[in-house]
């Protein structure tokens, strides 16, 4: 239990709860079950992407291309669905994941094999993948009436009055939790990020892990490609533009250290929830949507400053206090 709920995660949880109560006082409608369920649904995609981004950040890298990847995968399956509406929905989901994974592998290969620094690679593919959307779609949008019924139905399925999206995010949370805490692969990610030189001595193949981490990030970006398109019933060149920054902020707020090897899965989810809460609560307390971006920015800054303050490794004690 102690391992599950570290101190930092607890504080984050408390902040979310206090925030919820505070917003509730200002606007009681916000804390009704249906409203909270909406917030959770709205935050689900962010949770999934933050969890997959966490894997990349753990090994001291960042994937800036996730939003472009998401948009490209989403557009490709949308275009396919306009031509072949008869195909079953799981086919589209699988295809979206496959496309996303391929795009992720390309990132990984560029970084691990071509040795292009991760910032340059993912900045580059951020443009390339986004540009390819215009290319395949001719700049046109795919509207809700062009999708098949099946394509959009799954997303509105509810269980225990919580949405499919929410349950999917829960499933991804459990999978990533097990992956990072209970498999050799996950633990090796932590060691690689914590001390790359030492990881070499214990026989961890850095290139393999880089490619795998980016593939996982790509896989979930692809999955979210379907989710995003189905949820908003539209595929366009503009979807999720800039969303990679929200994802990274969720990780940072969740205590995933950009210096690698530090961070918990629960913290990451809580970080995403806090960001989701803020995004949804601002309109509820009558703050103009135009303030949203500035406030998110301020929160990222505050979070990283607090992180660094607490994280800054204690100086080794030499002297016995006497």
């Amino acid at each position: 239990m102690k391992k599950f709920l570290t101190n930092r995660d607890f504080i984050l949880f408390a902040i979310i709860m206090i925030g919820l109560v505070a917003v509730g006082f200002a606007n009681p409608l916000f804390v009704t079950p249906s409203s909270i369920s909406d917030v959770l649904t709205d935050t689900s995609i962010l949770i999934i992407l933050a969890l997959s981004q966490m894997i990349v950040i753990l090994i001291r890298a960042i994937d800036l291309s996730v939003a472009s990847n998401l948009a490209l995968s989403g557009m490709l399956i949308s275009l396919l669905s306009t031509v072949h509406p008869e195909l079953p929905v799981y086919y589209f989901i699988a295809l979206s994941c496959v496309i996303g994974t391929v795009l992720g592998v390309l990132n990984g290969v560029s970084i691990a094999i071509l040795k292009v620094p991760f910032i340059v690679t993912t900045l580059g593919t951020l443009s390339i993948y986004r540009g390819l959307i215009y290319f395949v779609s001719d700049g046109k949008q795919v509207y809700s009436n062009e999708f098949s019924k099946d394509f959009l139905a799954l997303i509105h399925y509810k269980f225990l009055s919580l949405s499919f999206l929410f349950w999917l995010a829960v499933a991804v949370f459990i999978i990533i939790y097990i992956l990072l805490n209970h498999t050799r692969f996950g633990r090796n990610l932590y060691s690689l990020g914590g001390n790359p030189d030492a990881a070499k001595y214990i026989g961890i193949n850095e290139n393999k892990y880089i490619i795998l981490a980016y593939s996982i990030s790509g896989f979930f970006a692809g999955l979210c490609g379907y989710l995003w398109v189905a949820r908003y019933s539209v595929a366009s060149t503009q979807i999720a533009i800039g969303f990679e920054l929200t994802v990274i902020s969720a990780c940072v707020v969740g205590g995933i250290s950009v210096m690698g090897g530090v961070g918990t899965v629960l913290g990451c989810v809580l970080g995403a929830l806090l960001i989701g809460l803020i995004r949804n609560a601002l309109p509820a307390v009558d703050i103009s949507q135009f303030w949203q971006l500035a406030i998110s920015g301020a929160i990222i800054l505050i979070a990283i400053i607090i992180n660094t303050k607490t994280e800054q490794r204690k100086e080794k004690t030499i002297m016995v206090e006497n």
């Binding site: 920054l245 950009v258 500035a294 406030i295 400053i305």
Partner: peptide
């Protein structure tokens, strides 16, 4: 002051500054 990597700080201020422009000008 805080010895934070600039890539992370400027990801934050990128939102902050742009957000200030939005909140000032709105539409």
């Amino acid at each position: 002051k805080f010895a934070i990597p600039s890539i992370i700080v400027t990801i934050g201020t990128m939102s902050l500054f742009r957000g200030l422009a939005y909140s000032f000008l709105e539409d």
